[in-house]
Amino acid sequence: MTDRLTTLRKTIENVLPNVEGVLALRIGPGGITAPHLFSKEHSEELDKLALWPKEPVPDTLKIILRAHPDAKLAIVCRGCEERGIVEMFKHSQLNLDNLTLIGLQCEQDEAEFCRCAKPFTVHSKLTVGEPIEGVPDPLTAKIEAMSQPEKQAFWKQEFEHCIKCYGCRNICPQCFCNICALEDETWVETGRLPMPNPSMYHMVRAMHMTAKCVACRECEETCPADIPMAVHFRLIARDVREMFNYEPGASMDQKPPQLLVLEEGEYERSGLPH
């Protein structure tokens, strides 16, 4: 049996001749990994192909596609990243016709690190590794079991550590509004730390992640204050599942609930805030 890295490399080598580039992870200087666009012209760079740590590749894809909307690319994506790409497609952020998905199945330790319920891809035609079952999320379960006052006290304390770096928003593959409510003085006062009302920033973000968060945990990972914010996104996702029977990224054609109001007209990215 070959390992995932070898199989992934072979898969990428097969795909490379048919695309302009394959977005995957590469080990850079000092052993630091980063997303990289592998090309057929420099296929020797695949010697530095990496699997872990997980990086926000859909976000990098978004940056490339904004400058090259018609580029024919492939992307190596884990379950969460695939869900992110599907949601970006549903919100008119990318064209799936030009995109080849290479699904990378997570292993047990990776799934446990992310407390992931769905560490596998479902849409990618090319896959690498064997899919495994989801793992429990003990942190979310613990917070869910708290009483209302306990929850309030817990989040108040967590949010007070926020240094308002905007990292959670910057790294999120689902944050693509041209004008961001978190930069609006009405909601989030600029130029003051600690924030006078830190819950406002986080609750605005939580509301905006409704039916969008794909549970990739990039926000938690980049947070310098270690705020476990994926927990409230997951609890909101549970509510959305119960109320609208909708799971972000799960199906290609089920319309996200927040777009249903626009059903009568064609939804297109207008360049204006929505």
């Binding site: 630091i32 240094i163 990292g167 910057n170």
Partner: peptide, 22 residues
């Protein structure tokens, strides 16, 4: 130059940045 991405497996910042770094 189009953006900044933190370096996850770096010993100092471990994938985090402040608003200035971002």
């Amino acid at each position: 130059l189009v953006g900044v991405l933190p370096a996850k497996n770096h010993v100092v910042s471990e994938g985090g940045l402040c608003i200035k770094g971002w």
